[in-house]
Design a protein around this nucleic acid. Sequence first.
RNA 1: AAUGCAGACUGGGUGACCGCCGCCUCGAUUCGUCGUGGGGGAGGAAAGUCCGGGCUCCUCUAGGCAUGGUGCUGGGUAACUCCCAGGCCUCUGGCGACGGCCCCGAUUCCAUCGGGGUCCCGUUGGGGGACGGAAAGUGGCACAGAAACAUACCACCUCGACUCGUCGAGGCCAGGGUGAAAUCGGACGGUAAGAGCGUCCGGCCGUCUGCGGUGACGCAGCGGCGGCUAAACCCCACCUGGAGCAAGGCCAAAUAGGGGGACAUAGGCGCCUGGCCCGUCCCCGGGUUGGCUGCUUGACUGCGGCGGCAACGCCGCUCCGCCAAAAGCGGACUUCUGCUGGCUUCACCGCCGUCGGAAGGGCUAGAUAGAUGGUCACCGUCCUUCCUUAACCGGAAGGAUACAAAACCCGGCUUACAGGUCUGCAGCACCC
RNA 2: CGGGGUGUAGCGCAGGGGUAGCGCGCUGCGUUCGGGACGCAGAGGCCGGAGGUUCAAAUCCUCUCACCCCGA
Length: 130
Amino acid sequence: MQRRHRLTGSKRFSQIHVEGSSAANRLLVIRYLANDSGCSRFGFLVSKRIGNAVVRNRVKRRLREAVRLNPVIDGWDALFIARRGAGTAKFQELKDATDNLLRRAKLVDASPQPTGPGQSVDQPSESSAT
RNA sequence: AAUGCAGACUGGGUGACCGCCGCCUCGAUUCGUCGUGGGGGAGGAAAGUCCGGGCUCCUCUAGGCAUGGUGCUGGGUAACUCCCAGGCCUCUGGCGACGGCCCCGAUUCCAUCGGGGUCCCGUUGGGGGACGGAAAGUGGCACAGAAACAUACCACCUCGACUCGUCGAGGCCAGGGUGAAAUCGGACGGUAAGAGCGUCCGGCCGUCUGCGGUGACGCAGCGGCGGCUAAACCCCACCUGGAGCAAGGCCAAAUAGGGGGACAUAGGCGCCUGGCCCGUCCCCGGGUUGGCUGCUUGACUGCGGCGGCAACGCCGCUCCGCCAAAAGCGGACUUCUGCUGGCUUCACCGCCGUCGGAAGGGCUAGAUAGAUGGUCACCGUCCUUCCUUAACCGGAAGGAUACAAAACCCGGCUUACAGGUCUGCAGCACCC
RNA sequence: CGGGGUGUAGCGCAGGGGUAGCGCGCUGCGUUCGGGACGCAGAGGCCGGAGGUUCAAAUCCUCUCACCCCGA
């Protein structure tokens, strides 16, 4: 995920937190809000209760990777908040949680996704094909 | 050998696909960026922020005070609450020995001899120590106890009185009991009873004397013998201005020249002095929470010689950069080989480690909601179970693979840590 | 990242070298027809953890672990 797809600035963070719509599952919470620019941006909130600095950085890296592997539609800002189990979860569990939330928020482009979720073996070949 | 203690080191590897952040180069560009190629990208603690510096700003940070810190000695260092060496104290193991006490045995009692234990002493190995001053002054030492810092309850002794076992006057000191701590411990003398009052052995103190040592200190002599507490106030010696890269500088944007207070013998910088500044200083309130810079190359390090016990210092050499050259400044770990030890082997070979010799060479993290990754496969290392083997080896399955991530940069300290390696010491059995 | 602070009973807080307290809460008894209020009695703490100084540490010192506050 490149730098321009990341969300910065505490003003925009709190705005999304207050005004955005939300969805949640066991590992993550998503809050999202439409923006004016042409691309979508993502922020990740991983608090100190998740773990130490190594664990928090790993969670953010894995979430960025999980979002990158999804075909997201443009024009939205989204905020992912990690819940307590995210520090010990495997990558595949975080990926499933991210896919689930993005689909429920209707932020994914549904047409170019022939394969269903949960088939991790096909993920690299699919992204290389597109 | 196992194991334990102390010290030092290491902190998994290879490949595939998909990604992230800087740098260099070339090309395109609507100057926003995009693409090709190359190269780089977390640690021994990056952590805790406990010390010390560099650097930046505060008008200068000059002198003194205050505050804070350090505290055996000598050395190292840019500096240190750090490091090295030494002194002293203390704990522990070994060895030796004078004396005291206790126990056992032998000889007919006293006594002597032998053995063992314990205390003290000497020497040696290892561990630990915030280790100036209590003889400048002030304070504290609960409860118990007669008494906790100058005192005498019981006991002891002398004298006197009488109601004849008590009272009074005095001497005396630590035998009793209390306590964490009670006037140096033991023996003998001495005495009315006693007392370092005296002698011997030992302990401690000294701003005393001599000798040795750079010094802490040691040895000998002399004088003496009421504590403990300075991580209580304090005294002495030495050091110390404050804030911190969110320091600081530049650009852009935005809000606004707002309110309160202080002032001319004034105000400001902890205080004073010096010096400096001036319509300034302090507080409150409001706005902007963007970019660039600082920003990565630094008290770092290779080899040799000399000095040093060591920590470390000085000089020289090879290569590279600043730069075209000189001078100057700055930077830079691998290979080969020898001795010896271990593993392996019938032996050679091979592997690993300490020490030594020779040769040549190379370096570089710079993010900013915070890059250095995600997934998979194979191989290492360790553990468990099973198979195999006389045993080692070998094979299969399962599990484990830590602690933890730069944020201006260094030097230390402290704390966390799977597994592994090496050195030193202790160490059963066996062999000589 | 830097600077500063706090950990004591279930909760909120005192105590700053000599055996640990206050208020609310809890338990039992009394009072009341019953409850509340009130009265009496009681339980509950190795003072965040480890080490040191001291005869003696919640208190003094060092290290450590949590939590909180401030900042261009």
